[in-house]
Amino acid sequence: MLMQLSYNWLLVLLSFAVSVLGSFTALQVAVAIPLATNQHQKTAAVAMAGGAMGVGAMWTMHFMAMLACDTGMQVTYAPSLIALSALVAFAAGAAGLMLVANDRFSWLKLLGAGACIGLGMGGMHYLGIEAMMMPAVVRYDTELVAVSLVIPTIGSMIALWLAFNLRGRWQMTASALVMGLALCGMHYTGMAAAGFYDNDGQLPDGYADGLRSANLGLTIFAIVTTLLLLLLVLYYWRQRYRSSLSI
């Protein structure tokens, strides 16, 4: 029997806010990658931007949105798949941002970066769904799955174009909003593509050892706090950089 999902709209909004915050932080770091003067600086900037994008914007948004979703069952999460999904998100975010920020901007690089982020977001999302342990099985609508991969690919291309080609206040706010929409669009389309069917109460192996919502909530809190700290450090560093520039 197909189970109905219901959402806590406050948490849905918070998932969007987290996605925008992560995207904003990631893009703030990413647009400075072309200014790196050596490989060490570039690697550090890519890692920071990839972390903010993958773990902050994608992974945290996904699991906050999962907390917003009431399946009507007690759900736990397989720790190994959760860790793998975070790793996929980080790798995809870092690869996408490194691609678009390295050397001169081009449409081909933008397409590659969009594909990295789009497919990475999809991979992370469906790994996250696979990580769910509950007395139900998941079946997918393949057309909606395909749509859920196209949305973040195109959305992230638009966001990256805005971030790297505009200047001024719209450069960061518009691109972060578009990226947040793209990632959330992927997630909720992906959820619409998934049907949760009751399996007569059969729990998977390891169910009792899985991560619970409270664990996820704490992890999300830690990541959001880290993102905010990173933004604060960036703001402070940029102010110092601006005042240190000699005319």
Binding site: P34, A163, N165, L166, R167, G168
Partner: peptide, 20 residues
């Protein structure tokens, strides 16, 4: 330029005139 416009990609002339 270094202070306010350096973040982002290099632009073509028309875009650089318009946005910078």
């Amino acid at each position: 330029y270094k202070r306010d416009y350096a973040l982002g990609a290099k632009l073509g002339l028309a875009d650089a005139i318009k946005r910078i």
